[in-house]
């Protein structure tokens, strides 16, 4: 290093006065101060907002062994207790062997009452504010199957409304799902019984799956989900209805915490007109197998090639009866 060079970089070199140094230093300090101050909102991060070391190191669902899964479930139960002061039971419910689920929906029966929508919200601990609903009921004008002509916001005094039929749409648990293809971290995949699931602790929130889904089935938590303690369903499972955090995806899971134990999904049980049928398509005696055999079923957007597990059909023999004098329900 030559002498002139070292002079240039030495602070007491000829080109450097004390005033200059102070001014530089103050400007730098100002810059640093402004930088740190810009991060002020981070001071308001809630306690659970940043992951704990255990959560940070938690593995993908498929890679966790029994012990790690139990630890994860215990963590979730503890968090529920801390946040809502409620004792929850969180399990890891596995698929049954020899079972592949299929859902069938009779469009001649659905009256558009939206009970399924809200039963699902209650069962799956979805955020009430901002609102998340997995099921979307479309009011379709008769004469068309073009779902772009559906009305999502219908609000008649009573349903069904004349000249319309109703089509509830939720995740179809496709056999060739575009959403699982596009996830960069494999946070969503198809299980052996056909249900497409999301590992809420693995999702990075890029929303590529939401862009890929042709059925508007996936939902994103844009804010921290808000549920009241008395609204919480305490029977939870890791892959379905345990509480989610902001920044992750979620969707209908065919109530796998119920259906994998033989029970019916919540939307089916609440339907007042019996429009929904659910079961194991590998069992030829099941209602869904019978429907696929005997009814003229179709799927939405068949041309996209997703192979949905959700089949729609009409089986009207005569138009639905209209208004009546006797009020019920």
């Amino acid at each position: 290093m030559s002498q002139t060079q070292s002079n240039a970089s030495r602070m007491d070199g000829p080109g450097y006065s004390r005033r200059s140094f102070l001014r530089n230093g103050v400007a730098m300090a100002g810059g640093m101060a402004a930088f740190v101050a810009a991060l002020r909102p981070l001071a308001e991060l809630g306690e659970g907002a940043l992951p704990s070391m255990d959560e940070f190191l938690q593995k993908h669902y498929k890679e966790m062994n029994e012990q790690e899964m139990q630890a994860a479930l215990a963590r979730i139960e503890a968090k529920v207790k801390e946040r809502w002061d409620v004792d929850a039971e969180v399990r890891d419910v596995r698929p049954r062997d020899g079972v592949e689920f299929v859902y069938a929906l009779n469009l001649s029966r659905c009256i558009g009452c939206r009970k399924c929508v809200h039963a699902c919200v209650a069962e799956n601990n979805q955020s009430r504010a901002p609102e998340i609903q997995y099921i979307r009921v479309l009011e379709m004008p008769t004469g068309t199957l073009d779902i772009e002509q559906g009305d999502h916001d219908y609000d008649h005094p009573t349903v069904p409304d004349a000249g319309h039929y109703y089509m509830p749409i939720q995740c179809h648990q496709c056999a060739d799902p575009p959403c699982t293809k596009v996830c960069p971290v494999e946070a969503t995949w198809t299980e052996d019984d056909g249900i497409t699931v999301v590992d809420y602790d693995w999702c990075i929130g890029c929303r590529y799956c939401e862009a890929a889904c042709p059925y508007f089935a996936r939902r994103f938590n844009f804010a921290e989900p808000e549920i009241a303690a008395e609204e919480l369903n305490t029977q939870m499972s890791y892959l379905s209805n345990r509480p989610r955090s902001k920044g992750v995806m979620e969707k209908c899971t065919f109530c796998l915490h119920r259906t994998r134990e033989g029970r019916q999904p919540a939307c089916l049980e609440v339907c007042p007109v019996g429009a929904r049928q659910f079961g194991n398509v590998r069992d030829p005696e099941s209602s869904v197998s019978q429907i696929l055999e005997t009814k003229r079923v179709f799927v939405l957007k068949e041309d996209v090639g997703t192979l949905p597990r959700f089949f729609y059909y009409f089986d009207e023999r005569y138009p639905r009866s209209g208004e009546t004098a006797v009020e019920e329900g």
Binding site: G112, H118, E131, H152, D155, V159, P160, P272, V326, E327
Partner: peptide
């Protein structure tokens, strides 16, 4: 358990609230 035998047709329902998304 679903159909009133004297009046089997379902009476209309009041629909529950529709979506209020962000």
């Amino acid at each position: 358990e679903c159909h009133d035998p004297h009046h089997p047709a379902f009476t209309p329902y009041v629909p529950l609230p529709g979506p209020h998304t962000l």
